[in-house]
Write a protein that binds this DNA or RNA. Structure first.
Lengths: 240, 240
DNA sequence: GCAATAGTGATTGTATACGATTTCGTACTC
DNA sequence: GAGTACGAAATCGTATACAATCACTATTGC
């Protein structure tokens, strides 16, 4: 997880180093949303000059992790509800596809691992450990989509997850009750894969799983956002 | 079309200028696949220094238009059949979603315009004008997906089209006979939108339309590529 | 004649320096 | 007292310069 098309830029590169460092700080929350990223400051912290840092920031901008304004500077992208909506919707689509494409390549060992992870998630619910739950959730889905044979799609999925991570959109944070349903849906998803369900069915299930999380979020959110959301129906959820 | 998340980088920026210039040259074929992009040379041509050029190239790399190798340089991405497969598959997914999301927002005027474009495409078939056909094809699909209310998805669609443009994957070029089927499918798509078909049906149709082009390409391609493609089934096509 | 190797040229990677733009604080005016 | 104009500090944008790396070729040894 979390390696995004590094093509051609080996680890030794300062640019790459800056990219990884800043990204890590955003994802782990050291730089929280709204944080002002000053090139010179970051450059000094990392012991490199501003040029590679600038390149790193621009790259993070392309991934949506930071917002860049000319002659003003970069800030870490915030928890704009609309952005959350866009991201979840996009992820629903690409992750659904990735999971469907992965399904035929998922072996018994993968399934077993996913089940173990899901069991741990259940435990987290009892001991209320949101942080671990979120990390395990990522692990679970990784098993489902990591075998996706199309690297472009896989990359899009990774980007979506990174974006969510930067938004700190833990399921617990937004909708406490949702987590319980989530683990149940995980088990259902596994059974579909296990029994060799059609790619179409798996894709729908994966989409619904994410859409449900989004819907739960929207349900407990101010009316204004819901109104905006009405213009952006999530595909495959409200069908039938 | 063809504006890809320029966020924060106003037109006046040399970096932006370099990006647009190089991109244009790639898309219009001045720099054809395999062309070696030397920073210093491009910088001189554009009358700017190498730093903005470098930034532009890196951005194009992120979009998949060029391939970058450390300490070696950048080359325009080539017509690697596998890359073509990946791109078409991804586009099939995001364009399908974008079209489905757009559908409810497409008005009668849009439909009429699309019909006019499709009629022109028919003419191109008779007079054999592949270049114009390809451009019109893009216009046609733009009508279908440009109303997509989710900018992230729309951006992914644009990227896919740009990538195809750089690959010069004109339908004519790859599979002459395919173009005739294509215009027929266009009409069918329009009718679905017109009659308010479900988002699911529209999405499937849009995916199939693209998958068919991909399949046609694969059908006339060496066995080795087909074998590789077998590992990468296109979703929603073989389901029937 | 072939292979390994050292040297050379070309190209990228990064640092430093300076100009351009914006922002924010302050003083001044109405 | 509020609003505006001005100025200074901060920050970004780009040019230039140099160091690091790699590809290619010629040479040498076998």
């Amino acid at each position: 997880m979390t390696e995004t098309a590094t093509a051609g830029t080996r680890a030794g590169s300062k640019s790459e180093q800056a990219y990884a460092a800043v990204k890590a700080r955003i994802v782990d929350g050291t730089y929280s949303p709204g944080y002002r990223l000053v090139l010179a400051k970051i450059a000094e912290d990392l012991g490199v000059s501003v040029v590679p840092v600038r390149e790193a920031i621009r790259r993070l901008e392309a991934e949506g992790l930071v917002k860049f304004e000319r002659n003003v500077g970069a800030t870490v992208s915030g928890i704009d509800p609309t952005e959350y909506l866009y991201t979840m919707q996009t992820l629903s689509i690409v992750e659904g596809a990735a999971t469907a494409l992965s399904a035929p390549l998922i072996g018994e060992a993968d399934i077993a691992r996913a089940r173990a992870v899901n069991a741990e998630m259940r435990e987290c619910l009892e001991h209320f450990d949101p942080v671990r739950f979120t990390r395990l959730n990522q692990d679970f889905h990784s098993v489902l989509f990591e075998h996706c044979p199309n690297p472009h799609i896989l990359d899009l999925v990774h980007r979506g997850w990174n974006r969510l991570a930067s938004l700190r959109s833990s399921t617990f944070r937004f909708v406490p009750g949702r987590a319980h349903d989530s683990v149940a849906e995980h088990e259902a998803l596994l059974r579909l894969v296990e029994t060799g369900a059609s790619a179409d069915d798996i894709e729908k299930a994966a989409r619904l799983h994410r859409s449900a999380t989004l819907d739960a979020y929207l349900a407990q959110t101010p009316a204004a956002v819901q109104a905006a959301a009405a213009d952006h129906p999530t595909p495959q959820t409200s069908q039938q």
